[in-house]
Nucleic acid binder design. Structure first.
Lengths: 170, 170
DNA sequence: CTTGGAATGTCAACAAGGCTGACTTAAAAT
DNA sequence: ATTTTAAGTCAGCCTTGTTGACATTCCAAG
C-alpha cells in the first residue's frame, strides 16, 4: 500500500518511520521479544507444574496485596472461572491467602504467603535479569522510547490500569 | 544517583533506569501492550474460527513465500505436530498452498493463495493500524528506542532470525 | 545397490488455560 | 423484601501447546 511517508499530512516532517515495512518490523519485534520476555519464568514454572497464568496472578497479587478477585479479573482480562482455577491451586498449595473483606464480607482479599513471595521473587528475578540486560544494552533513552511506544499501544482501559497501580485496597 | 541519563557512558553514569521498580514497570508494560498488540487480529480471527496460531503461520508464510515447514517450525518455536494441525486447516480451506520441493522433494514449500493473501492483508492492516497510531503518538525517536530494547530482549537465535529475514527459499 | 538418516506427515493421548452457561451462597444495596 | 453484586463451582467445549510412536519418501554415503 503506502510505501513511503507522505510529507503533507500534519507537518513537513519525515514520516518514514511509519512505512508498512517499518511497522512490520515492529510487529515481528514484538513477537520475538515477547518470546524472550516469557522464556525464563516459563522454564522455572515448568519445573513446578505451574503455568504462565499462575505467574500473572502471583505478579499482580504481589504488586497490589489485598486486591480483590474482581480487581484481579479486570487486570488480567480473563473470566472468573479461568482465574478461579488458577487461584484455587495457589491457595491449596499455600502460596496465596484469601481473606474475607472486613468492610464488605462478600469480597476476598488476596495476599501472597511467605512461600508465595519466595516464588514471586524467583520468577521476577529471572524476568528482571533479562530486562536489566536489555535495558543496559539499549541505554536510558531507548528505554524511555520503549515505554512510550508500549503505552501508546495499550487499550485505553489497560493504559489507565497500567498508569494508576497505586491503589491499595484492603 | 542523579536523574539524567548520559547516552554514551557506562561507568559512573546514572543507572536509575535499572531499578527494580523501573524494570517492573517495563515488565507490566510488555504485558499490557502485548494484549493490545494482539487484540485487533484476534477479533477478526474469532469470526473465522481461526486462532492466533493461524495468524502467525499466515504472517510468516507471507513474509517468506516458499519457506519450508522446517523453517517455519524454527521461526514459530512450536512442534511440527502443532504447526501441522494449523497448516492442515489452512491448506484445506484454500488459504495456503504446499508445493513439493523441486530440488529436495521431501520438503514442502509454503505459499499463500489469493484468498490467503486477502486474509493476511485484513489481519496485518488491523495490526498495523494500531502500531501506526502508537508510532505516530510516540514519535520517531521513541520508536527507535522501542526497537532497540525489543531486540536486546530477544534470545540470540531469535534475534538472528529477526535480523536476517531476507532468505527466500524456493 | 543398499542402507541410514533426514524431512515430513499422521495418529493418539494429554494438559493448560481460555471460553460459555447455569447455578449457589452470602452480603450489600435499594 | 427484593434485587444486585462478589465469589465460587460444576460441566462442557475449544485452541494450542506437548510426547510418543510410526509410516513414507528420498537423499546421500558406504
Amino acid at each position: 500500500m503506502d510505501e513511503r511517508g507522505h510529507p503533507g499530512m500534519h507537518s513537513g516532517e519525515s514520516l518514514l518511520f511509519l512505512t508498512d515495512e517499518q511497522l512490520r518490523k515492529g510487529i515481528e519485534a514484538m513477537f520475538f521479544a515477547y518470546r524472550g520476555f516469557t522464556a525464563d519464568p516459563d522454564r522455572i514454572l515448568a519445573t513446578l507444574a505451574y503455568g504462565r497464568a499462575h505467574h500473572r496472578a502471583i505478579h499482580f497479587i504481589n504488586r497490589s496485596p489485598g486486591t480483590t478477585v474482581n480487581n484481579l479479573l479486570n487486570t488480567l482480562g480473563v473470566t472468573k472461572q479461568s482465574l478461579n482455577r488458577v487461584l484455587r491451586t495457589l491457595i491449596e498449595d499455600g502460596l496465596v491467602e484469601s481473606r474475607v473483606g472486613k468492610k464488605d464480607k462478600r469480597e476476598r482479599h488476596l495476599f501472597l504467603t511467605g512461600e508465595g513471595e519466595a516464588l514471586e521473587q524467583r520468577l521476577s528475578d529471572a524476568q528482571r535479569a533479562r530486562m536489566r540486560a536489555a535495558y543496559r544494552a539499549a541505554g536510558p533513552e531507548a528505554v524511555a522510547g520503549f515505554r512510550t511506544v508500549l503505552e501508546a499501544m495499550m487499550d485505553p482501559d489497560l493504559r489507565r490500569q497500567y498508569l494508576s497501580l497505586r491503589e491499595e485496597n484492603t
